[in-house]
C-alpha cells in the first residue's frame, strides 16, 4: 500500500467550539474585571474622603455566602455533565445539566432577595449605583451561562449524546466556571470587604 493512500490522521488540536468559548469567556471576564476595578477605585476614593460607602448593616453576608456555596456546588455538577457527555451517559448528563440550571436559577432568586433586602435605589448614590452595575452585570452573565446550558440540553434531547455534544457542554462549562470565578470576586469585594 502506498503511504499517500493512508488515511489522514485526526487533528489533535483543541476543538473549535471550546476554543471559541474560552476566548469569549475571557472577554466577558475582562468586562467584569473592568467593572470591579471602577468599584474598588471609587470605594477607596470615598474612604479616603472619609465618606461611608454602604450604610452599616445594609449588606448582609449570609445570602452572599449561600450564593457562593451554591455556585461552588454548580462547578461540580457542570463537570459531572461534561464527564457524562464524554462517556455518552445520557441519564447522568440530563440530571447534571438540570441540577446546574437549578443552581443557577436559585442564585438569580437569591440576588432578587438581596436587592429587596438591601433596599438600595440605583440613583441613591455612587455606592448603590455601582452595587447594581457590578452585581447586575454578574446576573446577566449568569443568565447567558444558563442559556448556554439550555442549548446544550436541548441539543442533547434532539440528537445523539456523543462527542460533538461533549464539545458544546465543555464550552458551556468553561463559561460557567468563569461566571463562578467572577462571583467569587463579587463575594469578596462587594460582600466581604464591603
Amino acid at each position: 500500500m502506498r503511504t499517500t493512500a493512508l488515511p489522514v490522521p485526526e487533528a489533535t488540536r483543541p476543538r473549535t467550539v471550546v476554543v471559541g468559548a474560552l476566548l469569549g469567556a475571557a472577554a466577558a471576564f475582562i468586562v467584569f474585571a473592568g467593572l470591579v476595578s471602577v468599584y474598588v477605585q471609587q470605594r477607596q476614593a470615598a474612604r479616603a474622603a472619609g465618606t461611608e460607602w454602604f450604610p452599616e448593616g445594609s449588606v448582609e453576608l449570609g445570602p452572599a455566602g449561600m450564593m457562593m456555596m451554591t455556585l461552588a456546588l454548580s462547578m461540580v455538577t457542570v463537570q459531572w455533565a461534561v464527564q457524562a457527555a464524554r462517556t455518552e451517559d445520557r441519564p447522568h448528563g440530563f440530571i447534571a445539566l438540570g441540577v446546574t440550571l437549578l443552581f443557577g436559577a436559585s442564585v438569580v432568586n437569591q440576588f432578587w432577595f438581596v436587592y429587596a433586602d438591601t433596599g438600595f435605589a440605583i440613583d441613591g448614590g455612587r455606592a448603590e449605583l455601582l452595587f447594581y452595575a457590578v452585581t447586575g452585570s454578574f446576573v446577566a452573565m449568569l443568565i447567558i451561562g444558563m442559556a448556554m446550558m439550555v442549548v446544550a440540553t436541548v441539543r442533547s434531547l434532539m440528537g445523539p449524546f456523543g462527542r460533538e455534544l461533549a464539545h458544546g457542554v465543555q464550552a458551556a462549562a468553561a463559561y460557567w466556571h468563569m461566571c463562578v470565578l467572577s462571583y467569587f470576586i463579587v463575594w469578596y469585594v462587594v460582600f466581604i470587604t464591603k
Partner: peptide
C-alpha cells in the same frame, strides 16, 4: 485578537457604568 479581547471589554465596562447612571435621565455621577 488577543489584545482586543484584553482591552475592548474594559470600554464595555465603562459604558455599563455610564449607562446605568444615565438611562436617559439626569445622572448622578
Amino acid at each position: 485578537a488577543a489584545v482586543w479581547l484584553f482591552t475592548l471589554p474594559v470600554a464595555i465596562a465603562n459604558i455599563v457604568v455610564i449607562y446605568a447612571d444615565l438611562r436617559g435621565r439626569p445622572a448622578i455621577a
